[in-house]
Computed example of a mutant assay.
Amino acid sequence: MQESVIYQDILQKGEQRGQKIGEERLVIRQINRKFGEIQPALIERIKLLTTQELEDLGEALLDFSEVSDLVAWLNQE
């Protein structure tokens, strides 16, 4: 069963989802540490990002000085 194409597909999708959730959590923790608690609406927007966009946001955060920088970045995506 573990060698079936369907099983491997399900496993891969689960791994990808787990990776995305982990990246969401990390980016949100970084934002909260830098700016304090942010609005739930911003968190929801972050959760809609793709894995690549989350990685890009993680890098961009290094250049942000205030929450408005985050909002501007999200509006560009």
Rank of each mutant, 00 (worst) to 15 (best):
E55R: 14
P40K: 07
S68V: 09
R29W: 00
V5E: 08
D69R: 09
R25H: 02
E77I: 15
E77T: 12
R25T: 09
A72L: 13
D69M: 12
E23Q: 14
A72Y: 04
Q39W: 11
I31V: 06
Q30A: 10
D9V: 04
Y7T: 03
Q39I: 13
F64I: 06
L74V: 00
E23P: 06
Q39P: 00
E44M: 06
L62R: 08
M1C: 07
L54W: 02
Q16H: 08
L42Q: 08
D56E: 14
Y7M: 11
F35I: 07
I38M: 11
E53F: 06
E23S: 11
Q76P: 00
D9G: 00
E3L: 14
I21C: 03
E59V: 15
E53D: 13
G18D: 07
L54K: 03
S68L: 10
T51N: 11
E53G: 09
R25V: 11
E77G: 05
K34H: 03
L42G: 07
L11P: 01
A72K: 14
Q16A: 15
L26G: 10
K20L: 09
Q16W: 08
V5T: 07
L48Q: 15
E3I: 10
N32A: 12
L62A: 11
S65F: 13
E44D: 12
G36C: 06
E15Y: 05
F64L: 05
E24T: 01
L57N: 07
G18M: 10
E3F: 10
D9W: 02
L61P: 02
L57S: 06
T50N: 07
E24Y: 04
R17F: 00
A60N: 06
L57T: 07
E3V: 10
L42S: 08
V71Y: 02
Q16G: 04
D56F: 12
Q8C: 05
I43H: 12
E3W: 09
I38L: 11
T51S: 11
N32I: 08
I31A: 03
E44W: 02
V67I: 15
E44V: 04
E37K: 15
L11T: 02
G14T: 04
E55K: 15
I31R: 01
G18W: 04
R29Y: 01
G36M: 06
G58E: 07
L57R: 07
V5D: 04
L54Y: 01
R45E: 08
R17K: 15
I28C: 02
L42W: 06
T50K: 07
K34V: 07
M1G: 13
